[in-house]
Amino acid sequence: MNDFDFYKSESIADAVEKISNHTDSRFIAGGTNLIDLLKYNLLRVSSLVDVNSIKNQSVTEKDGLVLLNAFATNAETAYHPIIEQRYPLLSKAILAGASAQIRNMATNGGNLLQRTRCYYFYDANTPCNKREPGSGCSAINGYNRNLAILGTSEHCIAIFPSDMCVALSALNATVCVTGSEGERRIPFSAFHRLPDDTPELDNNLLPNELITSIELPAKGFEKNYSYLKLRDRNSYAFALVSVATAMELENDTIKEIRIALGGVASKPWRVQEAEDFLQEKAPTRENFSLAAEIILQDAKGFEFNTFKIELAKRAIIRNCLMALNPSSQLPGAQPSA
């Protein structure tokens, strides 16, 4: 880690002003990703602006909408009564990520901005377009077991590793940000980016913009939902594939369904065509299986991760069936034995 200066900010305006006044400066929230990157010298900063004192109430209701404070911890958010009762899918997804200690530190804003866990991104001795644009991608022809099968480009096949964001995607959240030019609202589907030929950009946040809150629409799908996370060990590991299902049933048919995948792309993955296909259909294994085929129809595997295509299909079917009976979910979104 290199030497740097440290500033505390007391308000949103103060934080944006401080970051704009210093070059090579970053916000620090929980620090659980940033400090790790600094320790590996993958990131060098001249100063950090601590945003932890900005925190207000972690979760608030406003005209039926619910706002998650960007500076609240993942744990506070997941265990907040409003989230547990109205958005249990989000609660379950957050609690499937990292460990209890990390969730006590990690913030909602930081979670959206965590960087990929591609091995080569972390290994400064290897080429990586995300770390060093134009240097090449070591993963495409390397060991790519935990990398993407959807939305990849010839420049990068990294995945975005968040669990929380898979649920936020299914819930159609909006990211609220403030920069020196003022406030902006970014729909969740437009927040994270595909790699294309600029894999160094993970998302559409502009330099010096601060995430201030995440807005959830009123509809929380609290009756029929499920989050399932498949990984190499059953807890404290990033997803190989995860699925968030939010479903609304009426007279035993699907009135509305949202299916978001994690661990398969550089952003949470949703396919409108599959969700439309299931509308007004019976919630059966056969129908979920047909939807899974649609979701994975464009999937492309690499040498070590082709297994993820079939894994994702099975996870979708299993998770949609579990959403019919949410109490069947296990702690930490583990698969049943």
């Binding site: 620090g31 659980t32 400090i35 790790d36 950090l48 990390i102 006590n104 530190m105």
Partner: peptide, 8 residues
């Protein structure tokens, strides 16, 4: 409970 290694 927190991790002291990832906290300044």
């Amino acid at each position: 409970r927190i991790l002291s290694c990832l906290t300044l």
